[in-house]
Structures are given as structure tokens and as C-alpha cells.
């Protein structure tokens, strides 16, 4: 290109004149060496700083945060499990207490029922005994009364027959007649 370092006639190297308006600057080859060198220096430095300092630090920060969040979530889950367990225990205790209360009530109810039943049966038995007693007595009284009636009838008949015919009937005839009349 026209703008490369030109040796003057005296042999002294004159610095290249890259400002030549004739050349489009990006295509000016005289600047390439310098640009590549300084790009290598600048980018190399940047790469070194990034890989040695900036990126380890950033990834450290992000990792710390991730760990911290994961830890917090685990802790929250643990507490949640604990509270769930406590709720379950409470529910269980409540259910047990309820079952117990139900059992006690049932027991008491059964006991009372049995008691009432027992007393009722006793009373009924008592009453039945008294009833049969009374019936027996009535029966006895009735039998006695009937016997007395037969006796009275025989006596009366004897008296009547004696006064009518003047002769007392025989015992057999009498009882036969009285029994026949009473039937």
C-alpha cells in the first residue's frame, strides 16, 4: 500500500503516515500490527482478570446464594414437616379422646341399662310372686268357702229333711244330693 513505512533517501525510517486520506482506515494495513498487538495485550489482560478474579467471585456469590436458598428451603420444609407431624399427633389424640369419651358414655349407658333391667326384673319377679301368692290365697279362701257352703247346705238340708219327714237322711244320701245340687 502507499502508506507503508517508506525509507527516505537518507535511509532513516520515517514513521508511517497512516493518516493518508487516500486509505480507508480499517483497510490500512500499516495499523494492523499495532492493533493486533494491543488487542492481544488488552484482551489477554481481560481474559486473565475474568478467569482469575471476576468469574470465580461471581460464581462464588451465585453459588452461596443458591446454597443459602436451598438451605432455607430445606429448613422451611423441615419445619413444615414438624408442624404437620404435630397436627397429626393432635388429631390422633383428639380422635383417641373422642373414642374414649364415647366408650365411657357407652359403658355408663350399658351399666345403667343393666341396672334398670335388673331392678325391673326383680320388681317384676316380686310382683309375680305376690300375685301368685294372692291368687293362691284367693283360691284357698274360695275352696274353704265352697267347703263351708257344702257343709251349710248339708246341715240345712238335714234340718229341712228332718223337720219335713222327721227322719234325718243318711250321710251318703245327703252328700249325694248336695253335690248334685251344687253342680
Amino acid at each position: 500500500m502507499a502508506t507503508t513505512s517508506a525509507e527516505t533517501q537518507t535511509g532513516i525510517v520515517v514513521p508511517a503516515e497512516p493518516h493518508s486520506p487516500a486509505t480507508f482506515p480499517p483497510f490500512d494495513g500499516t495499523t494492523y500490527a499495532s492493533q493486533i498487538l494491543w488487542l492481544a495485550i488488552a484482551f489477554g489482560l481481560l481474559y486473565w482478570i475474568m478467569s482469575r478474579v471476576a468469574l470465580p467471585r461471581l460464581s462464588g456469590i451465585l453459588e452461596d446464594r443458591r446454597d443459602r436458598i436451598a438451605g432455607d428451603i430445606a429448613e422451611a420444609n423441615r419445619l413444615n414437616d414438624e408442624s404437620n407431624a404435630a397436627i397429626a399427633a393432635y388429631e390422633q389424640a383428639l380422635a383417641e379422646a373422642r373414642a374414649n369419651a364415647h366408650g365411657i358414655a357407652q359403658e355408663t349407658r350399658d351399666k345403667l341399662k343393666a341396672d334398670v333391667e335388673r331392678r325391673r326384673t326383680a320388681t317384676e319377679a316380686d310382683l309375680a310372686a305376690k300375685l301368685s301368692d294372692a291368687e293362691q290365697r284367693i283360691h284357698d279362701i274360695k275352696a274353704a268357702a265352697m267347703e263351708n257352703v257344702g257343709e251349710i247346705a248339708s246341715e240345712t238340708t238335714t234340718e229341712l229333711v228332718e223337720s219335713l219327714i222327721g227322719k234325718a237322711p243318711t250321710k251318703t244320701e245327703l252328700s249325694k244330693a248336695v253335690d248334685g245340687a251344687m253342680k
Binding site: S5, P15, A16, T30, T31, A33, S34, Q35, L37, W38, L39, I41, A42, F43, L45, L46, I49, M50, V53, A54, R57, L58
Partner: peptide, 24 residues
């Protein structure tokens, strides 16, 4: 070889410096 520190080189170094400063 012309390896002069040019305005381009200055801005390359400035870019590196700015990125590094920002991140650090």
C-alpha cells in the same frame, strides 16, 4: 513494525479496564 500505542490501543485498554472495574 509499527507497534505504536494508538487511540485504538487506548480504547482497547480502556474497554478492558472498564469491564474489569465494573465486575470487580
Amino acid at each position: 513494525l509499527n507497534l505504536s500505542f494508538t487511540n485504538s490501543a487506548l480504547f482497547m485498554v480502556a474497554t478492558t479496564a472498564l469491564v474489569a472495574a465494573f465486575l470487580i
